[in-house]
């Protein structure tokens, strides 16, 4: 691989983002690819916004991706793609889960303003806005694909599979799958492999 490859992972606390970054980091180690990650997580509550920066390739540099420098972004929740959009380079790739998780403050506002049937901030809106930065947006219904693979908790693996299918992604799919196989509970390995392939397939259909 030539140069540096920058990734930003984003999502909501409790979605398994840390596992994702650990898997990618370990896979880099196995392939002898230098990697540094910076976690941007607050405290341990669920439901807050979290992000992880991952940087692969030679050179001495810090744990954070500078604005406009990420080659790819994996968003485990759609609005979390928009929340960190400044990190993506123009025409970078976004792997975006189509799932939306509505924060209690947003729900509270609807109730307070007597607007219970007004739509939440929508996927359409997110889509429209992120597409102004890049046309390379892959939307993945990760929950659906994970359920079909046999494990609803494997949404993160679906999205990782999709990232691994991107042109220019610096890690071999086999390495990543091996690492996943080593960290998930034994009885879910099969479902996780299927989840990975489903994501990979979705990506190859779109960008292959």
């Amino acid at each position: 691989m030539n140069g540096r490859y920058n990734m930003v992972l984003s999502g909501v606390g409790g979605q398994g983002l840390m596992l994702l970054s650990n898997v990618i980091g370990t896979a880099c180690a196995q392939e002898g690819l230098p990697v540094i990650t910076g976690e941007q997580h607050g405290l341990s509550q669920r439901s807050g916004s979290i992000s992880v920066h991952l940087r692969m390739g030679e050179g001495t540099y810090g744990p954070l991706v500078p604005p406009g420098d990420a080659d790819v972004m994996i968003a485990m929740e759609a609005t979390e793609a928009l929340r960190y959009i400044e990190f993506l380079r123009d025409d970078g790739y976004i792997i975006m889960n189509t799932r939306l998780m509505h924060h209690p403050l947003e729900t509270m506002r609807h109730v307070r303003e007597d607007a219970a049937t007004e739509p939440y901030f929508s996927l359409d809106e997110v889509r429209k806005r992120v597409r102004s930065v890049t046309p390379n947006v892959l939307e993945v219904d990760a929950l659906h694909l994970a359920e079909a693979a046999g494990n609803a908790r494997a949404e993160n693996v679906v999205l990782l599979g999709a990232a691994c299918g991107l042109p220019g992604f610096p890690l071999k799919k086999e390495t990543v799958k091996d690492v996943i196989g080593g960290v998930v509970p034994e009885k879910t390995i099969d479902a996780n492999m299927k989840a990975f392939d489903a994501g990979d397939g979705a990506c190859c259909d779109a960008f292959g």
Partner: peptide, 10 residues
């Protein structure tokens, strides 16, 4: 974009 501040877990 709605904020996603830390909040008590379910």
């Amino acid at each position: 974009l709605p904020v996603r501040s830390p909040i008590f877990c379910p």
